[in-house]
Amino acid sequence: MAKPFGFSYAQHADGSVVITHRGRAATTLRGSRAGKFLTELESSDAQLVMARWTGTYKFGNERTARNHPRNR
């Protein structure tokens, strides 16, 4: 699995899911949140899903940066 953003996850026997970013624990999901995460992970890009669930996603300047002449 390619990890362009450095996210990975591990599912534990108790049903919890630990999402790590570059080797450090970013968040732990338990119960129904862990189930929702795993369901969403199957239908979308894994790296973007993990970024969104950890809160390091879309700070508001993406559209502005994409439209800047330097980035075209």
Rank of each mutant, 00 (worst) to 15 (best):
F37H: 02
A34W: 01
Q47K: 00
A10F: 13
E40A: 10
N67G: 05
R70K: 11
F37S: 04
V49S: 02
D45L: 00
R52G: 11
R30T: 14
L41I: 04
N71A: 06
F7G: 02
N61F: 13
A34Q: 07
L29K: 08
R30N: 11
R30C: 10
F5T: 07
D14L: 06
E40H: 08
E62P: 01
T20F: 07
T56A: 15
S16K: 09
T64G: 08
D14F: 00
R72A: 10
Y57L: 12
L48Y: 09
G55P: 00
R70Q: 10
A10Q: 15
L41D: 02
V17D: 00
A51G: 12
A46F: 03
R52V: 09
K36I: 12
V17A: 06
A10S: 15
S32L: 13
G60D: 08
A25Q: 14
R24S: 05
Y9F: 15
S43N: 10
H12Y: 15
N61K: 11
G6F: 02
F5W: 09
T28G: 08
F37T: 03
V18E: 10
A13R: 15
F37G: 01
N71Y: 03
T56R: 15
G60W: 07
A26F: 06
A26H: 02
L48Q: 12
R63G: 06
T64I: 12
K36R: 13
R72P: 02
G55S: 09
A25Y: 05
Y9P: 07
R33V: 12
R70Y: 11
F59E: 15
G15W: 05
H21E: 06
A25H: 07
E62W: 03
L38G: 04
H21K: 01
D45F: 04
F5L: 14
F59Q: 15
K58I: 14
E40F: 05
R63C: 08
A26N: 00
R72I: 06
A2W: 10
